[in-house]
Design a protein around this nucleic acid. Structure first.
Length: 235
DNA sequence: AACTTATCCAACCGCCGCTAC
DNA sequence: AGTAGCGGCGGTTGGATAAGT
């Protein structure tokens, strides 16, 4: 493991402590539980392993599809992504992404680079406004919007930002944008990706009307709410 | 069977924003 | 205004295990 593994006894003590005192106040948990662990370890152990209703085992295709979609929109915001996958933790999602999906995307990126060398004109004529990296933490976005770093164009984009499928891809990093463009444009490697994700356009994805989405617990309004809160757009 | 390499994933680390003082 | 403490997050590490030779 990455550190000292938790014993069953420690798990029991932590669980008992949380059940008795509730979540939160993590700085007190080690003391209350009588554990020789730091607050962060306790919190992580609870969130990723001990918390009730945690789903274990491999990811279903629908879950993988959802992860890919959400990653396209949110970047490496694992906690937000996990929030849309009942029973899955941010750590699980992150690990799954790093172990399984990022490799596929890297392969795509490599291929995309090669493709771009031959087909420069694929890029859109009108430049997109990138309003901060989606993988950059919320603080960066907020600070960008509050400082004079951004151009007027950027500030305008930020201030007027509401959800709009036409603009949703703007929150993607340039690099990601290339990768996902490649997903749309080159079905070959995408065959490795699950289900019908490879055939869906952005519009279908945004509206949640993908052919397999009927079984997903997709609640776009909730997600937007989260994003608003997360990015501070609602304030 | 023994060894090497690849993969998985739990745990740790460092950073940041928020809040109270 | 400055700062310390906290919760929370994403990135990284490294041990266990599986797969390959």
């Amino acid at each position: 493991m990455g550190g000292v593994a938790w014993t069953e006894e420690e798990d029991h003590m932590l669980k008992k402590c949380i059940e008795q005192y509730g979540e939160g106040k993590w700085h007190r948990v080690p003391l209350l539980a009588g554990l020789n662990r730091c607050r962060k370890s306790c919190r992580l152990r609870w969130l990723n392993y001990l918390r009730p209703n945690i789903k274990r085992g491999s990811f279903a295709e629908e879950e993988v599809e959802m992860i890919i979609k959400l990653h396209k929109l949110l970047g490496n915001r694992w906690s937000l992504i996990a929030g849309r996958l009942p029973g899955r933790t941010a750590n699980d999602v992150k690990n799954y992404w790093n172990c399984h999906l990022s490799k596929k995307l890297n392969a795509l990126e490599a291929k995309n680079t090669q493709v771009n060398r031959n087909t420069e004109s694929i890029r859109p004529n009108q430049p997109r406004i990138i309003i901060g990296s989606s993988s950059v933490k919320r603080r960066s976005l907020q600070s960008e919007s509050s400082t004079d770093q951004g151009t007027q164009q950027q500030e305008s984009a930020i201030s007027s930002l509401t959800f709009d499928p036409e603009r949703e891809s703007h929150i993607l990093e340039p690099q990601q944008e290339n990768i996902y463009s490649c997903l749309d444009q080159h079905g070959g490697i995408i065959d490795e990706l699950p289900m019908d994700f490879k055939y869906e356009g952005v519009e279908a994805m945004i509206s949640g009307v993908g052919s397999s989405s009927s079984t997903n617990q997709w609640d776009w309004d909730d997600l937007l709410s989260d994003m608003d809160l997360y990015n501070g757009f609602s304030s």
